[in-house]
């Protein structure tokens, strides 16, 4: 084993820098957290707390008793996964399902691969897709954001804007007929729309993204490539037929688009190493997202698209590896 000379991304040199980055991400998620608590009330706190406790607990148990290695639950990575998981589910999801989600994210998607830095797929997204396919009813009953409430009783539920458009177009309606049913762009920006906890407010997410850019936790390449592709692709469709395709602004502001572009596609473990690779990665996510949103059976495609492109990352990294002088472009000179 020459694991000391070759290792996958990210090339983290010390625990301290991991910690700094991870807690930076947590801090960047605070605005979105506050918005979700404001709109979904006590339920949002329940989901956030439960996801965090469960994720940290599973990480601790697995590191201590199954892998029998050092316990690193204080490096913040499990907390980031937990908050992202909470952001990706409806606020009224039953507690036991949140715990299952945490087990899948930490136990299956992260620890089975050996822990932080080795996972191929974004843990929170694996858990989200797992939950979506396992519990389709509960994962698609979105409580309406109605301002802070202390109650734990079921809030009224409604569809997400994407769901309304997909259903409506599927039933043969046109975009102008659907206009009154979907929220205005101002509401999208603030967060007054049905959806997963963390994805509702565009402003809060953008604030977090700007903070991470400023702190150099992320670079602009992936989000800009991804969002740019979505804008171009949907503009073309919208330009061809504005009655049967939603406009680009709608696509940008609704669903998990911004949450995915800013916080999940940029996850440095499961994204490409070079900037060139990151742009290819972002463009791929953008194209797949629009394909699934417009023609697929699921109204939202961001999480599927990111997972699919996660699988392509090893190939992208190969293609964009800085070539060493004199090395033939042969493919199989490993091990």
């Amino acid at each position: 084993m020459n694991k000391f000379t070759i290792s996958g991304s990210p090339h983290i040199k010390s625990d301290e820098s991991t910690k700094k980055i991870m807690y930076g991400v947590v801090f960047a998620m605070v605005p979105a957290m506050l918005v979700s608590i404001y709109f979904f009330g006590f339920q949002a706190i329940r989901v956030l707390v439960l996801a965090s406790i469960a994720s940290l607990f599973f990480e601790w148990v697995i590191q201590k008793y199954l892998i029998k290695g050092p316990v690193t639950i204080d490096d913040g990575s499990a907390l980031v996964t937990a908050i992202l998981l909470a952001f990706n589910v409806p606020s009224n999801l039953p507690s036991w399902m949140i715990i299952i989600g945490a087990l899948i994210a930490i136990g299956m998607a992260k620890m089975s691969f050996g822990g932080l830095g080795r996972n191929i797929f974004n843990p929170a997204l694996v858990a989200r897709v797992f939950l979506l396919i396992s519990f389709p009813v509960q994962m698609t009953s979105w409580p309406k954001p109605e301002g802070f409430s202390i109650g734990l009783s079921d809030a009224t539920t409604g569809a997400t804007p994407l769901g309304i458009v997909k259903e409506g177009l599927g039933a043969g309606k046109t975009m102008s007929q659907l206009k009154p049913e979907i929220p205005t762009y101002i509401q999208d920006l603030m967060g007054q729309m049905g959806g997963s906890m963390g994805e509702v407010s565009a402003i809060a997410l953008i604030l977090g993204g700007l903070y991470m850019l400023w702190k150099k936790i992320i670079t602009w390449h992936i989000p800009v490539a991804m969002l740019g592709t979505v804008v171009v692709f949907t503009s073309i469709l919208w330009g061809i037929d504005s009655e049967h395709f939603a406009d680009p602004v709608f696509h940008l502001l609704t669903g998990g688009m911004l949450l995915g572009a800013i916080f999940m596609a940029t996850d440095m473990v499961s994204s490409p190493m070079t900037h060139g690779g990151q742009i290819v990665f972002g463009v791929g996510i953008g194209i797949l997202t629009v394909l699934i949103r417009v023609w697929g059976a699921y109204p939202e495609g961001v999480s599927f698209a990111i997972l699919l492109m996660n699988a392509v990352v090893p190939l992208i990294n190969k293609g964009f590896k800085p070539k060493r002088f004199g090395l033939k472009p042969a493919v199989s000179k490993k091990s």
Binding site: I6, G114, V313, P314, L315, K318
Partner: peptide, 19 residues
Amino acid sequence: VLFAGIREHLDIMDIPKQM
């Protein structure tokens, strides 16, 4: 091909020995 890319990548990773 996707899968081979991932497995080459996993080869250089420190996977838990049971897995």
